[in-house]
């Protein structure tokens, strides 16, 4: 198993945010963590990313504990967080520079990926010259260049307008089919979770616990117009019931 989160709980000021969370991500899987705002999704992500410590429980990446160890998994946030003062190319190679790779080598390594991520010709532009969708793609390329076995995406598409978001979903599935980046995705968008993931964990109640786990068979994703199918609606109904909304 790639990522294994076991019995993780965390409280702030005597208030339990997440309680006894168990989840796993297999190699090459896209797994969503679905929950309403304030359900502790980001708290859990911070723990997996090594930025904060759980009160109890363990986090294993490839059977090794990564508690309190930042830099083990890639992380992408809702804001693209591209540095306005660095060109697109210099932005995406940042994780390589951090690990001590020389700039020249980092640029060579990144060069073939710009086309893949729909950013050809924008290498030397500044982020301000890019559209919202392109900026998010650049942020994803940067995440990919972290070159870690698992990527944590914290609501990566939620700041985009509906149309751009849809286009980016399609693009995302295409690119994932090529790069096979194992992903744990936070979202509060039920449709997004259903369209993008192999499995969905639903976070509900206070304090948050995993209230449901839904596997989406590959056949459904491959079917045309999955989003308009009955199966889609049934799954959506189930999630809505899980969330008590």
């Amino acid at each position: 198993m790639l990522l294994q989160v076991e019995h993780v709980s965390k409280s702030f000021d005597q208030k339990t945010i997440i309680k006894d969370i168990n989840l796993h991500v297999a190699q090459g899987e896209i797994v969503s963590l679905l929950g309403i705002s304030g359900s502790g999704k980001t708290t859990l992500f911070n723990i997996i990313a090594g930025l904060s410590q759980p009160d109890s429980g363990s986090v294993l990446l490839q059977d090794r504990s990564i508690l309190n160890q930042p830099g083990q998994v890639s992380y992408m946030l809702q804001k693209d967080l591209l540095m306005p003062y660095r060109t697109v190319a210099n932005n995406v190679i940042l994780p390589l520079l951090i690990t001590g790779i020389k700039k020249k080598h980092a640029l060579i390594k990144a060069a073939p990926l710009f086309a893949e991520f729909g950013l050809s010709g924008y290498e030397d532009k500044y982020p301000a010259d890019l559209s919202g969708g392109m900026r998010q793609r650049a942020a994803l390329l940067r995440t990919y260049l972290f070159d870690k076995p698992l990527a944590l995406l914290d609501e990566p598409f939620s700041a985009l307008d509906a149309i751009t978001k849809r286009a980016l979903h399609t693009w995302y599935l295409d690119i994932m089919a090529k790069i096979h980046l194992s992903t744990l995705l936070i979202t509060h968008d039920i449709d997004e979770a259903l369209v993008l993931s192999n499995r969905i964990y639903v976070l509900a109640n206070t304090p948050s616990v995993i209230s449901d786990e839904i596997a989406i068979p590959k056949a459904l994703h491959d079917a045309s117009e999955f989003e308009l199918s009955n199966e889609f609606l049934q799954l959506k109904r189930r999630i809505i019931a899980d969330l008590h909304i």
Partner: peptide
């Protein structure tokens, strides 16, 4: 400096 950017840098292990 943007705190989220600093957080991102920390996740990169900087």
């Amino acid at each position: 400096a943007d705190q989220d950017l600093i957080k991102l840098m920390q996740t990169m292990g900087s």
